[in-house]
């Protein structure tokens, strides 16, 4: 799912720090912004915009972090509004609902672990490319 690939150039100390922050940003926001799933996306998006004119390494990792948050937003928002409708409308807890929550939770846990791992590796200057998100970032983010 994730692979360590040599980057185009060896990133500097200040770059690895910023790139690592882009992942940490989503984690901190996820803890602070619970249960609203949009908070972590907004935090990552702001960090991405702030570093839009930064070096290629930083931009690349900001983009990867942002893309992963966008897909999680859809998964979590659906679960969030489903929960809201159970609390405030006639909708009842069902087997489908619990199955969806467990699936969404598993995906969030996987993303959480991968994000922590990537933040640590990026800080060390190791370029970590995720399955799908890495390829997508390569298409969007150019040197």
């Amino acid at each position: 799912m994730i692979s360590n690939i040599p980057f185009d150039y060896p990133p500097g100390e200040h770059e690895t720090e910023k790139a690592s922050y882009s992942y940490l940003m989503s984690l901190i926001a996820a803890i602070a912004g619970l249960p609203l799933p949009i908070i972590n996306l907004l935090a990552t998006a702001f960090f991405y915009l702030a570093n839009k004119k930064s070096t290629y390494f930083v931009r690349w990792h900001c983009t990867q972090a942002l893309l992963s948050q966008i897909s999680l937003l859809f998964v979590n928002s659906y679960g969030f509004w489903w929960t809201i409708s159970i609390i405030f409308t006639k909708e009842e807890i069902s087997n489908h609902y619990i199955a969806y929550l467990i699936t969404a939770f598993m995906f969030n846990i996987i993303e959480f672990i991968v994000t922590i791992y990537t933040a640590i590796q990026t800080r060390k200057g190791i370029h970590v490319q995720w399955w799908f998100y890495g390829s997508l970032t390569n298409l969007i983010c150019k040197p």
């Binding site: 897909s71 998964v75 087997n95 619990i98 199955a99 969806y100 467990i102 699936t103 399955w131």
Partner: peptide, 20 residues
């Protein structure tokens, strides 16, 4: 597509269990 497939498969498997 493989990520979407993984999500749908996991959802399908979870749906097989009677959580209620």
């Amino acid at each position: 597509l493989s990520i979407v497939f993984l999500f749908v498969s996991m959802l399908f498997l979870c749906n097989q269990i009677n959580w209620m």
